[in-house]
Simulated scan of single mutants.
Amino acid sequence: MNMRERFPLGKVPSKVLSEVLFRYLGQRDESVILGPQLGEDAAVIKLDEGYLVVSTDPITAAEREIGWLAVHISANDVAVTGARPRWFLSSILLSEDIDLLNIKHISKQIGEAAKSLGIAVIGGHTEITPGLQKHIVVGMAMGLTDRYITSSGARPGDKIIQSKGIGFEGISILASAYEAYLQKKLQKSTISEAKKLREKISVVREALALADHDWLTAMHDPTEGGLFLGLHELADASKTGLKIYRDKIIITEPVRRVCEVLKVDVFSLLSSGTLLASVHPRCVDEALGFLSATGEKCAVIGEMLSDSEERVLVDSTGGRKPLPKPVEDAIWKLIEE
C-alpha cells in the first residue's frame, strides 16, 4: 500500500481499515465479543448479564441539523445490533464564529432527538476548535440487549428486505442547503417534504420490531455511500454475494425529484433511515408483517448468494450488471463541484 496515497472525502476505504487501522487495537479483551470489523455497525461487550452495545459516528456533511442527526445516526447503529438505545454522549467541536444562539440550537436538537427515542444524554465534551470551517458533532450511543445481531450473519438464500426508502438523510440535508436553487425547479411542497425527511431517519422502531426473531440473520444501517455501499458492506461482513432487483428498491417521490434536479446518484447518497435486513426465505412474509406494523413501507429487494464475488443488479428486463460499489458518497461529490 502506498503510504502517500490520497483518498476521497468520506469513509476511509475498507482496505485501509483492514490493513492499517485494524492492526492497532490495543489490549486484547475477552469481554469484547464484537470489535472493529468490516460492515459492522457497533461494538458488543459481554457483561455479567447480557451485552452492552456501543456505536459512535461523526456528523460532518450537515450544518443545520447536526445535533438531531448525531443522536439518530448513533442510535440506529445500536438498534440494528439488537439493542434499545438508552444513553448518549457527544463531543461538540465548534468553529470560532459560534455564538450562544447556535450553541443552544445544537444542544436543543440533541435533547429533542434523545427524548424522542427515550435516550438519556449522560455526558460529553464541548469546545471552540481552532481551524474548523463548520461545526462537527461526534455522537456515541449505548444500549443493552440479551441477544445481539451482526451484519455478518446473512446466509446464501436469505432474502434482503429494505424499509421506508433511500437517501432520506442526504436529501434532507441537500433540500435545506440548496433550497433557493430547488425553488426554481420544484414545487414548494416537494421541497418541504424533502426537508421533513429528517424526521424519518431513525430505524430504531423497525430494527427492534425484528430483533428478537430467530429468522432474522443480519441487519445493517446504510449511511455514507448509500444503499449500494450498504449492501456491499452487508455482503462483505457475511462473505456472501448479492442479487438485487433494481425495480424493487423503494424510492420516494421527493427523493427522486431532488436527485433529478441536483443530478445526484440516489443509490450512493447518505441513507440513514433505511433498514436492511436479511431473513430466512421461509419467513419473509412474517418479517414483512412486523415491519408493516410499524407503519413503514417495506419490500424484498434481493437475496444473498453463495459466491462472494457475484454481486449483481438486475433490471426490469432481467438484464444483469455488476452492483456498483461507491467509493465516495454522492453528497461529497456535489460539495466538491
Rank of each mutant, 00 (worst) to 15 (best):
G139N: 01
L276V: 06
G39T: 06
V121E: 11
E336M: 11
A62G: 00
L38S: 04
S268A: 14
Y148E: 09
E328Y: 00
M1T: 10
H72P: 00
A177L: 11
H213P: 01
I136P: 04
A62V: 03
V327F: 03
S272Y: 07
M3F: 07
L100Y: 12
A277N: 09
M142S: 14
S14T: 12
L100P: 01
L9I: 00
L197Q: 13
V314N: 12
E49S: 12
K108D: 15
D41F: 00
S163N: 06
R28P: 04
S268Y: 04
M1G: 14
R4P: 00
Q133V: 08
K200Q: 14
A175N: 02
G153M: 04
I128N: 03
E30W: 03
T60W: 00
R28C: 01
S176C: 01
P85G: 07
I92K: 01
G289A: 04
L275E: 09
F7W: 11
A237T: 05
F22C: 00
S192H: 12
L323F: 09
K297S: 13
A83L: 01
K11H: 06
R246P: 02
R198P: 00
V53Q: 14
V312A: 08
I98N: 12
C283D: 15
L174F: 02
G67R: 09
I128T: 11
K325W: 04
E179H: 08
A330C: 03
M3C: 03
A83K: 08
I66Q: 05
A79K: 08
L210V: 04
V78Q: 06
Y245N: 13
S95N: 14
G170H: 06
A113F: 04
L89S: 13
V204P: 11
P58M: 02
A114F: 07
Q162Y: 05
E328F: 00
V255A: 15
E112S: 12
L9K: 14
K164T: 08
E63H: 04
P13L: 07
A180K: 15
I201T: 14
A177K: 14
D329Y: 09
S278G: 04
L21A: 10
S306D: 15
V16D: 06
A287V: 05
S316G: 03
I191W: 01
F228I: 05
F88E: 13
S152R: 12
G165L: 02
V53H: 13
G143V: 01
A180M: 07
G153E: 03
H105G: 02
V137K: 10
D77M: 12
T126D: 02
V121G: 01
P8G: 12
E253V: 00
W68N: 06
N76V: 03
P13T: 00
P13Q: 04
G124I: 08
N2T: 06
I103Y: 07
E328R: 14
L234N: 13
G225D: 05
T223S: 15
L269F: 08
K104S: 10
V264T: 14
C259P: 02
N76R: 07
K297M: 06
C259M: 02
K159M: 12
K134T: 03
T150A: 10
V261Q: 04
V16K: 01
A175E: 03
L242P: 09
